[in-house]
Design a protein around this nucleic acid. Structure first.
Lengths: 335, 335
DNA sequence: AGCACCGATGTCAGCGTTGTCTTGTTCTGT
DNA sequence: ACAGAACAAGACAACGCTGACATCGGTGCT
């Protein structure tokens, strides 16, 4: 026998000799059903290859309570894809499915895909904010859709957020470099507009100030032009008449760019990157590490909590960062 | 004014003084509507912050024709997340949304998440097969859901597939090593059960055979125990009384493991990895490269094609691989 | 015996859309 | 001036499911 049509509750009900509602009850476990009725229903369902229609369930229940949307800039950066992995795992553990959408790191993209996801009636929205303003989500939030910001807090919007201890991590990196005798310490990043970078820069500056080291900004390179290759920024920096003896790279891309720029140098500057990466141990790169998988999990956990019992309050979760010494950050200054 | 309720077609219709169907027409662009009616409707919709309910649309149209499901083993491997990125981009370009689900690389997981996605009535299913048998999807396929296998062909199931030129890539790697004078060439991978690995091993063996080099399998390590760390496999191999002078690593993980194992050796063996990775150029690692982003895009393109006009035929797409020499694979054998 | 109660099931309407069919109005050609 | 097309818009049912309410036979208690 071949099934030609997708089976519905009614089909199963007819075959089992009960009403559609009873079949519904068997699947939703909310109501008592006699054991042998359950058997009859399940047998009929198996025979017909019945699968409850989540679409219809969600429509009926008013809102796609079983799906969660995640808006990210792009999936190619391992940091983001690891966060996504954490979200997906946690959601799956709780029976939710994840819809992902990328914005191409553009502000219009963000609003556009948010619209698409909300049209799908996702039960909650996770996002890594790109723009300076997420107020366009305010209406939706008031309608009861939890919004959770990841990596950066949302702007002009009441929303929970899960971020890293950026300031503290950068502070630790700069302080360590000072401790190794460095006085000309650079901070490079591109793009630099995001919240994360301004926090990290703040931590870096604070550490220099506390140590009484030149914090004039001469060795800061805070760019905002995706067209400039990371290694070029570092090369320019090092061609300075009085080049820095140590470099802090604002993120994984910048760090790898810096590695490209300094690999053939006789006396490479010390280097500390932000974000750990796969081959950092092999390359001996000191980094400010953290746990992006856990970040995703925490965010998802918070999301589920908010979907299950909405509150007026919002939480700001900050996950720790810690310095992982691997050699490149422990080089003494060369004069 | 604050909206308390999500607006529906009817709400918009009432405010615009037309019928719900007319509002529907305005949004679906399938039917003629008078220009000034369109204006009235759009104004009303904007005032009410109306967003068409995709859930209801998909239910009504019979099947979630606007969503596509993607089943992958795990998102942490950059190869897979890059494929996912390619899929997402291509789908988004065509107005589809992507639901991702991971199986934790387990066979039961695969069937379980497939079920979840099909319950969501996805319009098509993309998957990286894990198990030896995807016949459980046959019924669904007959109901008209296109199924597209990525990286490995589906087993016991009529499905399109997009794979790499694995055999040819491994052949090229082995042949190159032979060309550099190597005679004891190892192939290591873990897990080894997958289609990709058997193809690669076949290519490797063929190249050895053609060159008249020892193909006894003495230097093959085809494991299937995720608990064994990749670097350990390589260490064991090198502790052999007559160790290989060159190693081909079956995938990115194995390659990085091999790097860990050989980095402190005075005379490291030549190394060629399968799959390119972020810092491979810095580490000077020769790899068999390919384009996972494009792989995702092609798969998504094929998916869309199949959703729009189903055919009885299936395509097997094979994407090229090419050797990228960066030094580690060009080392001469040390005796 | 009478009544409240409970457990197991059924009936019905409606979630927000859209396909099909119908109605009414305006335009075209002879 | 009038048939027939072309257009604009509405009425209604249905997609698959579940919440609210109704029904019915059986228990337990007074």
């Amino acid at each position: 026998m071949t099934i030609q049509q997708r089976a519905t509750l009614d089909d199963v009900a007819r075959l089992a000799g009960v009403s559609a509602k009873t079949v519904s009850r068997v699947y939703s476990h909310r109501d008592q059903v006699a054991p042998d009725t359950v058997d009859r229903v399940l047998n009929a369902a198996k025979r017909l290859r019945f699968r409850p229609n989540t679409l219809a369930q969600n429509l009926r229940r008013g809102g796609g309570s079983s799906t969660v949307g995640f808006i990210m800039g792009e999936m190619l950066n391992p940091f983001y894809s690891t966060v996504a992995a954490g979200i997906e795992r946690e959601l799956a553990d709780h029976g939710f499915t994840l819809i992902v959408a990328t914005t191409g790191d553009s502000v219009e993209g963000e609003e556009r895909v948010a619209d698409t996801l909300l049209a799908q009636r996702v039960g909650a929205l996770l996002l890594i904010p790109v723009g300076e303003d997420q107020s366009y989500l305010e209406g939706e939030r008031q309608l009861g859709t939890p919004v959770i910001a990841i990596d950066r807090p949302a702007r002009n919007l009441v929303a929970d957020s899960v971020v890293l201890a950026n300031r503290q991590g950068a502070h630790a990196a700069a302080a360590a470099l000072v401790g190794h005798g460095h006085r000309r310490i650079a901070y490079v990043c591109n793009p630099a507009s995001a919240y994360t970078q301004s926090e990290r820069v703040a931590g870096y500056r604070a550490a220099l100030r506390e140590a009484g080291v030149d914090g004039s900004g001469r060795w800061e390179r805070l760019l905002d032009d995706p067209a400039i290759p990371p290694d070029e920024v570092v090369r320019e920096l090092l061609s300075h008449p009085e080049p820095p003896t140590a470099i802090i790279a604002g993120n994984n891309r910048m760090c790898i760019g810096a590695l490209r720029a300094i690999r053939d140098l006789d006396d490479p500057p010390a280097l500390i990157g932000f974000d750990d990466f796969d081959t950092a141990d092999i390359l001996g790169v000191t980094v400010v590490g953290h746990d992006p998988l856990e970040m995703g999990r925490q965010a998802a956990r918070l999301t589920i909590e908010r979907m299950q019992q909405p509150t007026g309050f919002t939480t700001q979760l900050e996950l720790p960062t810690h310095l992982i010494p691997r050699g490149s950050g422990e080089r003494a200054p060369v004069t």
